[in-house]
Design a binder for these strands. Sequence first.
DNA 1: ATGAAAGCGCTAACAG
DNA 2: CTGTTAGCGCTTTCAT
Lengths: 348, 348
Amino acid sequence: MAVRLKDIAQDLGLSVVSVSKALRDHPDIAEETRRRVLKRVGELGYQPNLTARSLVTGQAWTIGLVVPDLLHPFFAGIAKVISSDIRAQGYGLLISSSDEDPDLERQEIERLLARQVDVIVLASTQSSAAGLRRMVEQKMPCVLFDRRLDGLDAHFVGNEDQEVGALATAHLIEQGCRRIAHIRGPEVSTAAGRLAGYRQALAAHGLEPLPGHVAPLGRSGDHRGERAGYEAAQRLLATPTPPDGIFCYNDPSAMGAMRAILDAGLRIPEDIAVIGCGNVSYSDFLRVPLSSIDQGGEAIGRRLAALVLDLADKKNGRRLSPTTDLVAARLVPRASTLRQPLVKDDTV
Amino acid sequence: MAVRLKDIAQDLGLSVVSVSKALRDHPDIAEETRRRVLKRVGELGYQPNLTARSLVTGQAWTIGLVVPDLLHPFFAGIAKVISSDIRAQGYGLLISSSDEDPDLERQEIERLLARQVDVIVLASTQSSAAGLRRMVEQKMPCVLFDRRLDGLDAHFVGNEDQEVGALATAHLIEQGCRRIAHIRGPEVSTAAGRLAGYRQALAAHGLEPLPGHVAPLGRSGDHRGERAGYEAAQRLLATPTPPDGIFCYNDPSAMGAMRAILDAGLRIPEDIAVIGCGNVSYSDFLRVPLSSIDQGGEAIGRRLAALVLDLADKKNGRRLSPTTDLVAARLVPRASTLRQPLVKDDTV
DNA sequence: ATGAAAGCGCTAACAG
DNA sequence: CTGTTAGCGCTTTCAT
């Protein structure tokens, strides 16, 4: 096995406790002793056993993160930011991908509870808070992000989804679209909010969705939604009044939609303008560069990390009442919606 | 606090030991007793404290994963696959992103050692194995992937990099390119191998790199390499004999290179063919769909997971001598290299 | 089949 | 300042 506290203590003719204190900069320990300890620790390459420490302190120095799909750049980015922000304070990140499966998600949360992680960060796939009750009962601090869940005693960091939907839709209207369709996402708060924003923006201009112009994405196969977006767009093209603009739930579905449009021999944005959501990397390099709503993923990650660190510290605001932290979304117009002569966009 | 073994024991008038045994399907426990225990456990929603269990068994039920950049789809994909494959056996995945920084990477590995994880999976940024000696000394089972490291007593799963480079380069030659340049990656084994494969394929056709035709990517800013690829391609275009084909270290740099080429008013692939490596999602949707080498990321993840589970099981082949598992790479030709009339490719 | 004793490596409370 | 005594919650002998 590895070097233990005991070994160092025996080595130096000290007690285990003194060594332990010396290592944690405890106030009452002789400067001289501390140096001796530190020296030997360095030589032996001692590392305190965090498992043991956790057992007694009740702090795991671990944050649990559960996302629907780690391969999605939005979630991968969040994971990356949180990971590096909490690392500086000595925390590690235990990540699991729920694959958009509510049961799997619950199971993973159970695991995190068993592991006694300090905080759980969650973009939930649940349709209701019921399945997450256990978490609250165990007084596990929890931060939801991106997707809200009513009736759960948890913090939230994310966007004002209705604003997101309105932003995208209003942009299409400005660009001269009048028959604007929406490819809506699954049964989670973000999809509902974006849909509401879409309707709101239309209404604000005296418009409304034409028959069949709200097309659900469906679960057809691919997780990211390209294929589903393709199919949804095909259905839109087959409606009595085909759209001249489409606001898509996310960027992958927008890519699928664009492909369907091009395959149908139509032009983007001249015949149909397309806007997505998420501002996925590479949007700039696409066949038709894709306009999108940037959710401010990095900011969300940063704020999550800060909140998590607050909550993880036992002494701290453990009992903070649930906060809601809204990060501003931003329109990123590109060629897929610019029906006026294309304004050169230099972002790389 | 949560429910403990003790609570259940008292509840049922049993000893802690019996309950513990009942829960782990220990042979000598009465069927009747087991049922009573299981019932009460269900009612109380008991979850064994994994921290305590780990302390005594020495098994953390945790795998550590260190990658250079979690936002890179290749690594995100690996993380996702490993996570779901090990989850079924009860393991969790502790992930950290080293940001391509060797020091940070070492620091993260120290943390994982302190946490007593069962296995470390690593795509290393180290230029030598020296800094990782501690890991071996502590007998921590380790699996390297993607990037090799000589002189380390560790398993490896990944590609034959030279084959990867040769595959890409040979394809360019077949497409009629004769002045083939290479944008090479940083100082890691994959870059060296791909470069070697590039030279080898050229040599096999009696060709060799022209002056200035091996352009290093450089560390200029963006982590994924789009900007760096852009700049490298500009340098290539400025050589006395500009290339008619470019093999890029990875897909992001290839996207940058393509942009530079288009910005210079040249056509892809007619003037310059471009091929990347990694077969990043969305390659199909790009302005010019990008030919690439698929590294078989999913297969790599699967094999990693299987190996990891073997190693994690204390009873098992803990002492397996280092294995090398090579996953076949595959050419995925798209428009960026097809100088003949484009063959329709239906992959979505 | 069941349970008492011992201990995993560490820290918290107290005594010297 | 230093060390002793008690655990954290669980599993592992080893009696009964």
